[in-house]
Structure formats: structure tokens, C-alpha cells
């Protein structure tokens, strides 16, 4: 296991290096940020001075060498927009996104497992049809629409919740509602399909013939064996949320890294864009590693090898 983790970490580090290089080059292909930080009538001399000051006049490979040298010293450069260390800015925003992602996934997994499993257990029933239709609707609705309709209905019309911002529990309801809808729809469908397959398998028939109750058959035997595809999909969905819920954070003024990423891209804040990608990339690598480890815990037949 230790060897597996070590190898996967090494592979993860390699992917991160590739990712950072790619983002470094792609961001710079969009041009110099000088024009966004100087007034419209700024002279060409001032634009040149800005580029010189920030190193944007150097050839790409020299800028890259400088950046890589910085990373080795754990210096990710300074944010043009916030005048602070880029990594500091990103890490300052990460907890807000992580909290949102954690509660989103908690709700998504709970709802999807309960709805998907009970739907599979009573195939063809009214409950099954209702779950299928509801989950299909949930996964088809665009999140910006849900966000704006949620604000219009719950905050403006009913006056029950705040429109946006951060604060007590009431500020969490609309962002969580918006964020959970689509992943819940997707995961419910995956759980249902995986459960149907598991419930049709021999070991479930054996368990039933041995007199195990229907509840125990569904939740103890079948669910555990249906968990692998569910875990895989949950991992992908979680990665999307950790990546920063761009739309939700922007609409609700949630100061997470999704919001930061949008601001940084609009402001050509290269150092912050790179730091966001690196931090979220690292989080996804770690999460994938945890999921791989979880596979072997869920099904001991899966042997982890480097």
C-alpha cells in the first residue's frame, strides 16, 4: 500500500508539472495584461514600461525558467490584482470552496444513495418512475438558471433567504441547492443502475435464499458491491465542485477559488491563475489517490499495485 501511494504521488506530481506548464503557456498566449492595468489612452512607452516591470517583455522560455525557479523556492509570484503573494491569495480563498464542496458532496451522496437504492429495489414502481423523472430533470437544469430562479423565488418573492453573500446557515441554502441539484441527478442514476446489476447477481439471490431481510439485502450486500462505480462518479463530481463552482460562486458572491479564478482570468492575473490551477490540481490528485485507496477497502479483491 505504501509503495502504491508513493508511486501514485510521483505520477500525480508529474501530472501537476505538466498542468502548470500548459497553463503557463496558454495564459501567456492571451497577450500581456498591460492594457487592462493602464488607462485607455496610455502611451506605448508606458505599456512597454509595464511589460518590462513585470517581466512580460522577456521571451517565453525565460519567463518560464524564472517561474519554475520561483516554484522551487515556493514562490509562486505576486498577484497583479491583489498585490499579494499569489499562493497566499489562493490558499486564503480555498477554505470557502472546500466547505461548499464538502457539504455539497455530503448532501449529494446521501440523497443519491437513498433515492437510487430504493428506486432500484422497487423497479417499475411509482417511486422508481418518480425518482427517474426527478433525477433526469435535476441533471438537465442549468445551474445559473436554478441560481437566479432560487434568488427570485426564495429571496425576493418569499423573503425567506438572503439573495447572496456569506454569513450564517441561511446564506448556505441557495448555493447548496444550486450546487447539489445536477450532481444528485447524475449520481442517483448511477446508483440505480449499479444497484440493479448488483441486485440481479448470484450472491444477492444466495443471501435472499438464506433468509436475509430485504432491507439488509439492499443496504448491506448490494450497495457495498455497487459502490465502485458510484465512488468513481462521486469522485469526478467532487473534483468539479472542488475546482471551484464558477457560476455559483460568481452569482452568489461566494469568495471561493471559482470566483477568484474568474476574476483572475478577466484581469490576466497570470500568477493567480497558475496558483489556482496548481492548488486545485493538487487537491484532485490527492482525492483520486484517496478514491483508489477506498476501492481496495470497499472490495478487498482489488489489489493495489504500483
Amino acid at each position: 500500500m505504501a509503495r502504491f501511494i508513493l508511486t501514485r504521488s510521483r505520477q500525480g506530481a508529474l501530472s501537476l508539472i505538466g498542468l502548470v506548464l500548459l497553463v503557463f503557456v496558454l495564459a501567456r498566449l492571451t497577450g500581456s495584461p498591460a492594457l487592462l492595468y493602464l488607462p485607455e489612452d496610455a502611451s506605448p512607452e508606458r505599456v512597454a514600461a509595464f511589460n518590462r516591470e513585470n517581466g512580460f517583455d522577456q521571451p517565453l522560455y525565460l519567463q518560464l525558467l524564472d517561474y519554475v525557479g520561483g516554484i522551487l523556492r515556493l514562490d509562486f509570484g505576486d498577484s497583479l490584482l491583489y498585490g499579494d503573494s499569489a499562493l497566499g491569495v489562493v490558499l486564503g480563498r480555498f477554505p470557502a470552496t472546500l466547505q461548499l464542496a464538502f457539504f455539497t458532496m455530503l448532501i449529494v451522496v446521501t440523497l443519491a444513495v437513498v433515492a437510487g437504492a430504493s428506486s432500484a429495489a422497487r423497479r417499475g414502481s411509482v417511486r422508481d418512475t418518480a425518482t427517474r423523472v426527478t433525477s433526469m430533470t435535476a441533471l438537465s437544469v442549468p445551474d445559473f438558471w436554478v441560481a437566479l430562479m432560487g434568488i427570485a423565488f426564495f429571496a425576493v418573492y418569499l423573503d425567506l433567504l438572503p439573495t447572496s453573500g456569506i454569513g450564517g446557515w441561511e446564506f448556505w441554502v441557495l448555493p447548496l441547492l444550486t450546487l447539489t441539484l445536477r450532481p444528485t441527478g447524475i449520481l442517483t442514476q448511477v446508483v440505480r443502475t449499479a444497484m440493479i446489476e448488483a441486485l440481479d447477481s448470484d450472491y444477492v439471490r444466495v443471501a435472499r435464499s438464506k433468509g436475509v431481510g430485504p432491507h439488509a439485502v439492499v443496504y448491506k450486500h448490494a450497495l457495498r458491491n455497487a459502490a465502485i462505480p458510484v465512488l468513481t462518479m462521486a469522485g469526478i463530481l467532487a473534483a468539479q465542485v472542488v475546482n471551484g463552482a464558477l457560476v455559483v460562486e460568481t452569482v452568489f458572491g461566494w469568495p471561493g477559488i471559482g470566483n477568484l479564478m474568474v476574476t483572475a482570468i478577466r484581469g490576466r492575473d497570470f500568477a493567480v491563475i497558475q496558483a489556482v490551477v496548481l492548488v486545485t490540481g493538487a487537491a484532485i490528485v490527492v482525492m483520486n489517490l484517496l478514491i483508489d485507496v477506498a476501492y481496495s477497502r470497499l472490495n478487498p479483491q482489488i489489489r493495489l499495485s504500483a
Binding site: 477554505p95 466547505q99 464538502f102 456569506i166
Partner: peptide, 13 residues
């Protein structure tokens, strides 16, 4: 995480 959420709450508008 709930603790962190509490911290976020303290910066409430």
C-alpha cells in the same frame, strides 16, 4: 469543516 464554516460565518455581512 463545521468549525471552518463557523469562522466563515464570523465575517458575515
Amino acid at each position: 469543516l463545521l468549525g471552518l464554516a463557523g469562522c466563515a460565518g464570523s465575517t458575515a455581512a
